[in-house]
Amino acid sequence: MNIALLANPAAGKGRRAALLPAVVERLRADGAVVEVLGGDSAGEVRQRAHAAVRDGCGAIVAMGGDGTVHLGLQAVAGTGVPFGIVPAGTGNDFAVRLGLPGSPVAAAGVVADALRDGRRRAIDLARLEGGDGTSAWFGAVLAAGFDAFVNERANRIRWPRGPQRYNRAIVEELLALKPRRYRMTLDGTATEFDSVLVAVGNTESYGGGFRIVPGADPTDGLLDVVVAEPLGRLTLMRLRPKVLKGTHVYDRRVTTHRAKVVELAGAGVTAYADGERICPLPVTITCVPAALTLAA
């Protein structure tokens, strides 16, 4: 079998880059041919992954965090090509929620064994179509509220570097916090509301374990949606720790929904999915059952 391995050496702050040879060795253990796909940009890696699928590779494996997995999903979604995940990022939300091992070498062993034995799992994915013509797949969560604004601000910050820029972005977004007007349509039923937090999930967590849409099941053919009423700064920050446990959904100011198709619009809001910048609203998100063939 020919395996195309997408490997991000910067994932997990670079701490797991040294494990790449061991991961490759484990994937090769049953005679597979492994080609490591790299590139100077995410766009180049994505092109190489698409080319590998077109050329008939036996499987795509992503070694990295949710961003690397997101790149791989764009190539394999809906194709039936087996996809393996070797978690090597900081959060690894999609892999964790699929029950995969946290150790990269152990995860590579699971992938290798699954490919050898023909073991596959059918996993739902979310298909996004933006009003600006953007098309993308995502596996975990789309953020279109406070957390999306934090990501957007953090991407503009040049100092400090690293995780500290997110702390600065959170503080600055709290100071700038204001409700936004949204229009949301769930399977054809439309509503309008003001909110500071909107999230759409295929699986339940983002940001390294924040269970924003607890109970989201990537095999039920539905997307889970969480909406928070307009909240003040202190209330929002008090609610945030509850998201780690998923208990925020019991707050009377938080509502949850499930739908196959979610249409979401809001002026001045940019959507992030799997932690990646996608496009400005409006977007239409559709759950596509069994779009991913997971080798696990």
Rank of each mutant, 00 (worst) to 15 (best):
N2A: 01
L5F: 01
N8P: 07
N8L: 11
A10C: 08
A11K: 13
G12A: 07
G14R: 05
R26V: 14
D30M: 02
G31D: 00
V34C: 06
E35V: 11
A42L: 03
R48H: 13
A51H: 14
A52Q: 03
A52T: 03
D55W: 12
G56T: 10
G58E: 04
A62W: 03
A62N: 07
G65I: 13
G67V: 02
Q74P: 09
A75R: 09
A75L: 08
A77D: 07
V81Q: 02
P82C: 11
G89Y: 02
D93Y: 15
V96Q: 14
G99S: 00
L100R: 03
A106C: 12
A108W: 08
A126G: 14
R127S: 14
G133F: 10
T134F: 08
S135T: 12
W137V: 02
F138C: 10
A144P: 12
F146P: 04
R156P: 06
R158I: 06
R165W: 15
N167C: 09
R183K: 09
M184V: 09
M184H: 06
T185Q: 02
L186K: 07
A190K: 07
G201L: 03
S205E: 01
T219R: 14
T219W: 05
G221I: 01
L223W: 03
V226Y: 01
M237N: 06
L244R: 04
K245S: 09
H257C: 02
V261R: 15
V261C: 15
L264S: 07
V269I: 13
A271R: 11
Y272G: 14
Y272S: 14
R277N: 00
I278D: 11
C287Q: 09
A291M: 09
L294Y: 11
A296T: 15
